[in-house]
């Protein structure tokens, strides 16, 4: 992995998820999968984070929260949508209170499908995101724009 030399930190937000993906995201941080060995830490502060991990689908209530977190994150950053609900709404897409995947609200760089997404998949998705983050970082050095 010739990615970033620095440790990327993630912030995790549960947007109307069923918890299944949330606990799998947390499982990535604990001994068996242990992404901390790559220097990845789950932080609660959006201003410390490089990677925004969203589980679950968007609804009216959490729209503002997601936007808020996203806007507070320093650029360049990447967004990873974990689980089928974050991709498209999943089994809940027909519910009255679900407006769809996270992609409707903020630009998502990597989608991790699955119900619930397995830790291996999530780690794979995060590693892909690191590549994108690195590219964005290099582009920004060249004076490009962060999007």
């Amino acid at each position: 992995m010739s990615y970033l030399t620095k440790s990327p930190w993630i912030i995790h937000y549960d947007a109307s998820s069923c918890n299944g993906c949330d606990i799998e995201v947390l499982a990535c941080l604990t001994p068996l999968y242990d992404v901390e060995r790559f220097g990845i830490i789950n932080t609660g502060n959006p201003k410390h984070a490089d990677i925004f991990v969203v589980t679950g689908s968007v609804n009216e209530q959490n729209k503002e929260v997601i936007k808020n977190i996203y806007n507070q994150m320093p650029k360049p950053n990447v967004v990873v949508g974990v689980g089928i609900c974050a991709c498209s709404g999943g089994v809940f897409r027909e519910c009255y209170n679900v407006s769809g995947g996270v992609g409707e609200l903020i630009p998502v760089d990597v989608y991790v499908p699955g119900c619930a997404a397995r830790p291996e998949q999530i780690i794979d998705g995060i590693v892909k995101a690191l590549g994108i983050l690195d590219k964005k970082y290099k582009d920004s050095k060249k004076g490009g724009d962060f999007k």
Binding site: C18, Y96, N97
Partner: peptide, 28 residues
């Protein structure tokens, strides 16, 4: 913040399929 309204989905899924929705009320 995580209200989905899945109880209403019984109108769209038949009773055998709803097991999967019931299971996804919570992932724990």
């Amino acid at each position: 913040y995580v209200h989905r309204g899945l109880e209403k989905l019984v109108e769209k899924r038949d009773f055998k399929d709803f097991v999967y929705i019931a299971e996804r009320i919570c992932g724990i």
